[in-house]
Amino acid sequence: MSIKTRAPVGREAIATFGWWRAHRFLILRRLSQMFFLSLFLLGPWFGIWWIKGNLSGSLSFGILPLTDPFIAAQSLIAGHWPELTGLIGALIVALAYALIGGRVYCSWVCPVNPVTDGAHWLHDRLGLKKGWQPKAGTRWWVLAMVVAVSALTGTIAWEFVNPVSMLHRGLIFGMGLAWAFVVAVFVFDLFVSRRGWCGHLCPVGTFYGLLGAKSVLRVSAARRADCDDCMDCFAVCPEMHVITPALRGQAGETPIILSHDCTNCGRCIDVCAKDVFAFTHRFDATDAPARDDRSRSQPASGASRAA
């Protein structure tokens, strides 16, 4: 099935449930991204210092320390044992994401997400080819590389180039030329590799994914029996390979999307006109029958390739 001949993604869902219902998690996600950014901007812009610092490390209301666990981990690898405040902050953040899904950071908080989502939107509008698609394991290699360089140079290596913290810090403390890194990510996603940055390279996302490997909050293809193969969920999912095992699973296989690559963005829930997906927890054992023709048509592999 060709993407080009298909009706725009989500049209059916809008027709069935209305615009808001077919966009709610997208809107909520943008609101959440703006919310977290503006919390940090309240201080420098309006002098309301509820939160000081940035995503790398912050202090809220003078008592709650938060630290990026990925940065703390690199610091440890580089040979520095952070002070208790920093460690506690990292622990709090790590625990939170371990519960709600590590890559919730990616879809609900990370300031680069609107950038790469924007690149993807434009990519779609321009009808560009998907371009270079790195191998599935590439992000692990990148993460390993960051760990190795941290150890070898004795520095928090990724922070020298991390577009995520550069953008966030830049907005709060002053940008300098950091925008160049952000533009580079945008251009990379637009012309070089569709969904390349967040989907294949960014070690921050990989680390958070690892953190949330056993997270409680999950999306489930609970009503997968109703799926009519419109492929809209594959089209909107930034990590489409995570859908297949749950949606195309045989009866008896779990309908819960267990891959830690899933960002819990909820877009599949939005765009499905058959209301197949829903947020649930990983221990949800509700029976989810597979579609009866599953064993015959086997569109799973073909579908993920097409999408």
């Binding site: 000081k52 610092g53 940035n54 790398s56 490390g57 912050s58 202090l59 630290t67 990026d68 940065i71 703390a72 610091s75 580089a78 040979g79 520095h80 952070p82 920093g86 004795g154 520095t155 928090i156 922070e159 913290s165 810090r169 709060i172 403390f173």
Partner: peptide, 11 residues
């Protein structure tokens, strides 16, 4: 050592 320790939080 500073570059192993400072997380660039700006606090």
């Amino acid at each position: 050592d500073f570059l192993a320790a400072c997380i660039r939080c700006g606090l």
